[in-house]
Design a protein around this nucleic acid. Structure first.
Length: 229
DNA sequence: CCAGACGTTGTT
DNA sequence: GTCTGG
DNA sequence: CCAGACGTTGTT
DNA sequence: GTCTGG
């Protein structure tokens, strides 16, 4: 699954990598410990404005929700469910986005506690998580734009640490995924699948990651781990 | 028909 | 145990 | 996802 | 808004 991730790229790198324009002026500082409920950059394609980068809240709020805090865990959407679940039907058809990431964390439970692992692409490039977004407006006029990250089965390499992983798109699939005119839901469903094992690597990191208040590049340094295992 | 839910993960 | 906050 | 709180009154 | 359950 994917309940915590890293985006260390700056805005210029995001613009360059996705050929997208930041919408408005938003502050963006790299986040080494992004948790559900925080604002993070997403890339989406508008009929008129074209491809934009915007900051949305992690944790999809359905447009029909009465309150922002629904109490549900919409920070992940199962790939197996996006076409059928009420909450994701419309987003899957017309509100797909890319969630840029440098890597993500998964925890392994051991007698010594929950040990975080940091997973990246071998080439250290940006990961393009497949995401869905939603636009919510409250009675008082408050507006919340939010997103969820699609998860799928783990590939063979990650299976030992976790049975789910985020759906990561190949570069050549991004255009298809973002195109709002693309209604080929069967073809789109085929894009959200386990990423090739050979292009993934991971290592243990400090349990400092566990507390979402902790931040900084030191979180993704390999943990020497002299005492466990 | 109306009422009520609408979600995922991990753990048992 | 379960919810909230980050 | 994990960590940390989980409550009220009255007073400053 | 839209689906499921009764």
């Amino acid at each position: 699954m994917c309940g915590r991730y890293v985006l260390k790229a700056g805005i210029e790198e995001l613009k360059e990598n996705y050929q997208a324009t930041p919408r408005g002026t938003f502050e963006w500082r790299p986040n080494y410990n992004a948790a559900p409920s925080v604002d993070m950059p997403v890339v989406l394609q508008h009929e008129k404005e074209g491809r934009v980068i915007d900051k949305y809240r992690w944790g999809l709020v359905p447009f029909w929700a009465k309150e922002v805090n629904t109490g549900y865990s919409m920070f992940n959407a199962r790939a197996e469910s996006i076409a059928s679940k009420r909450t994701y039907q419309k987003p899957f058809k017309k509100q797909r986005c890319i969630v840029p990431a440098s890597g993500f964390y998964e925890w392994v439970k051991t007698p010594d506690g929950k040990i975080p692992h940091y997973i990246t692409l071998k080439d250290q490039g940006l990961m393009s998580f497949a995401g869905l977004y939603e636009h919510w407006q409250g009675d008082g006029g408050q507006v919340v734009n939010s997103f969820t990250i699609i998860t799928t089965e783990s590939n063979d390499k990650l299976a030992p640490i976790h049975d789910r992983m985020p759906a990561i798109l190949l570069d050549q699939e991004i255009d298809h995924w973002l195109d709002p005119a693309n209604q080929d839901t069967e073809g789109l469903r085929d894009l959200v699948r386990p990423y090739p094992s050979d292009d993934i690597s991971f290592y243990k990191v400090s349990t400092a990651v566990n507390n979402a208040r902790n931040q900084g590049p030191s979180l993704i340094e390999p943990d020497e781990d002299l005492f466990s295992l």
